[in-house]
C-alpha cells in the first residue's frame, strides 16, 4: 500500500461527504415537510417556511430567547446536580460492597419510578418552586448516573492504585490523575444520556408547575392549537441541544481520549 496520499485524500473526501450527506438529509426532511404541508394545506401542519417565520418573529420580540434561556438554565442546573450526586453515589457503591448491598434495591426502586410520579410528588411536597422543579428532574436522572458510575468504579484497576500509593502520590493527585481518567468513559456515557433525558423531563416540569420556559410556552400554544409556534420552539430547542453535543461533549471526549493509540 504505497498510495497513502490517495488514501488520505479518500478519507478527507469521506469526512466531507458524510457532512454533505448530513446536510442533504436535513434538506430532504425540510423539503418533504414543506411539500406535505403545502399539499395538505391544514392549520394543524404548518409549512417549514411558516415555522421559520414564526421563529424569526419570536426572536425579534425576545420571547423565544428568553424562554429558551430559562429552560436551558434549568437543564444545566438539574444536569449538574444529577451528575455530581449520581457520580458520588455510584463511586461509593462501586467501591464498597456493604453499601452496595444495602442500597441496591433503593436504586432499583428509583430507576423504575416514573418521571411523572417524581415530579408530582416533588410539587406536592415542596410546593411549586424552582428548587422542587430542578430537584425533581435531578432525582429522575440520579439513579441512571449512579448505575453507570458504579460499573466504572467496579472496573477500576487496582494496580494503578497500588502504584499511586507506593509512590505516595497523595489523595488529590490520585483522584485526578489515576481514578478519574479511568472513569471518563463512564462519565461521558452518563452525561450523554443524561442530557438527553434531562431536557425532556424539564419540559414536563415546566408544563406542570412553572410559568415560563419552553415547556410552559408549549402548553400555552397547545391550548391555542398554535402548532406553528409549538414547532418553532421544538426546532429551536433541539438545535441548541445538538449544538451542545457538537461543541461541548464531542471535543471534551476527544480530548479525554487523546492518549489512545
Amino acid at each position: 500500500m504505497s498510495a497513502s496520499p490517495t488514501a488520505e485524500r479518500a478519507s478527507s473526501w469521506l469526512v466531507s461527504s458524510s457532512l454533505a450527506q448530513r446536510i442533504a438529509s436535513v434538506a430532504l426532511f425540510i423539503l418533504v415537510w414543506q411539500v406535505t404541508a403545502e399539499v395538505l394545506h391544514s392549520r394543524l401542519l404548518p409549512t417549514a417556511t411558516a415555522v421559520f417565520v414564526a421563529m424569526v418573529h419570536m426572536c425579534a420580540d425576545g420571547s423565544l430567547p428568553f424562554n429558551l434561556g430559562i429552560t436551558l438554565a434549568r437543564v444545566a442546573a438539574a444536569f449538574f446536580v444529577a451528575m455530581i450526586v449520581g457520580m458520588a453515589i455510584g463511586i461509593v457503591m462501586g467501591r464498597s460492597r456493604t453499601i452496595d448491598v444495602l442500597f441496591d434495591s433503593w436504586l432499583v426502586l428509583l430507576l423504575n419510578l416514573p418521571a411523572l410520579v417524581i415530579i408530582v410528588l416533588a410539587y406536592v411536597w415542596f410546593g411549586l418552586t424552582e428548587a422542587a422543579a430542578i430537584g425533581a428532574v435531578a432525582v429522575n436522572k440520579i439513579p441512571a448516573v449512579a448505575v453507570t458510575l458504579r460499573e466504572g468504579a467496579r472496573a477500576l484497576d487496582r494496580s494503578y492504585a497500588d502504584m499511586a500509593q507506593s509512590f505516595q502520590m497523595g489523595r488529590w493527585r490520585t483522584l485526578r490523575h489515576v481514578i478519574l481518567p479511568q472513569l471518563y468513559p463512564y462519565i461521558f456515557a452518563a452525561a450523554r444520556s443524561g442530557l438527553a433525558l434531562v431536557w425532556k423531563i424539564v419540559l414536563i416540569v415546566e408544563l406542570l408547575g412553572r410559568s415560563n420556559g419552553v415547556g410552559f410556552e408549549i402548553q400555552l400554544y397547545f391550548q391555542q392549537f398554535d402548532v406553528t409556534r409549538i414547532l418553532a420552539y421544538t426546532i429551536a430547542f433541539v438545535a441548541v441541544i445538538q449544538l451542545i453535543e457538537w461543541a461541548l461533549f464531542q471535543p471534551l471526549e476527544r480530548r479525554a481520549a487523546r492518549w489512545r493509540p
Binding site: 494496580s159 509512590f167 505516595q168 493527585r173 490523575h177 489515576v178 481518567p181 492518549w259
Partner: peptide, 25 residues
Amino acid sequence: ARVGYVFQEPRLLPWRTVYENLALV
C-alpha cells in the same frame, strides 16, 4: 524512607505522557 517500586509490568498511567508519569510522583 522513600520506596521506589518497579513493578513487574511498567504500570505507567496510559492517559498521561511520559513526562507527566514521572512528574506526578
